[in-house]
């Protein structure tokens, strides 16, 4: 069991539905201040994007944030240096793409991220069949490999994914890349399939944009991931106070379940 597993089981055992805001590292010079604002607003876990030039699983908002971060010179090293200097008090999960960690070197990347306080990593383009080497490195280094279950995942495959996931299972609410949408999509059905195979915390994301959606998701899931709706605000120049306020709105609705 990784540290992230222990921490997230602890959140659930404490009777709390986890709120996981996503922010892109380096999208603005004050991005670490925004992480702190999200924690102040009630985040239980932070998902931090490490920018990649060709983010296949991301919609226009997070693409824009990634390009802004890259234009500002953001790298895995620069992100780890800034994160390492923070004490946020909540677990950090990094999201990036295979090539960023492959190019850095798997062991080296895992070590660098873990040393910076990152407890888990999501690589959306690393399919289960290709996971082996990275998973071994992460298991050895106490870094959780968080896997995604999609609406298209057949039931037999759901069991293999949940067995291999660490920290939590990312239940994709719809067949789509990251973005904003209405409702909970296929989230309930995906959650049901995950629950049938695993007792691991199951978090819902993809298209969850509003406090009302977050509430609907939290009625069924152990946690809710909100990315594009928050990043849109960041790109539009929201102040840390405004970020905190939006996260607090999400928190309030989640806690009302």
């Amino acid at each position: 069991m990784t540290t992230l597993d222990e921490r997230l089981v602890g959140v659930r055992d404490g009777g709390r539905r986890a709120l996981v805001p996503y922010l892109m590292a380096g999208a603005r010079p004050d991005w670490t201040r925004l992480l702190q604002a999200a924690v102040a607003g009630g985040a239980d876990v932070l998902e931090v994007g490490l920018p990649f030039s060709d983010p296949m699983m991301d919609g226009p908002v997070i693409q824009e944030a990634a390009l802004a971060a890259l234009a500002a010179g953001t790298t895995l090293d620069s992100v780890c240096a800034e994160l390492g200097a923070l004490d946020l008090g909540v677990p950090l999960v990094a999201m990036t793409y295979c090539n960023v960690v492959y190019h850095y070197g798997l062991e080296r990347a895992a070590g660098r991220l873990r040393d910076a306080g990152v407890l888990g990593v999501i690589l959306p383009d690393l399919a289960l069949e290709e996971l082996g080497e990275w998973a071994a490195v992460c298991d050895a280094g106490d870094l959780a490999t968080v896997l995604m279950v999609a609406p298209s995942t057949p039931p037999a495959r759901v069991a293999r994914l949940t067995a291999r996931s660490r920290g939590f299972v990312y239940a994709a609410a719809r067949m789509a890349v990251t973005g904003t949408a209405e409702g909970l999509g296929d989230g309930a059905a995906v959650l049901e399939r995950v629950r049938a195979t695993s007792t691991m915390p199951a978090y819902v994301g993809i298209g969850i944009a509003s406090p009302a959606q977050a509430r609907a998701a939290a009625e069924r899931a152990d946690g809710v991931i909100v990315g594009s709706a928050l990043v849109r605000r960041v790109l539009d120049g929201a102040s840390p106070e405004e970020v905190e306020s939006f996260v607090r709105d999400l928190r309030r609705e989640i806690d009302a379940t």
Partner: peptide
């Protein structure tokens, strides 16, 4: 080679 795609596309 290999297959480096999001889970949503693996079944396809």
């Amino acid at each position: 080679g290999g297959r480096f795609v999001p889970e949503a596309l693996v079944p396809a």
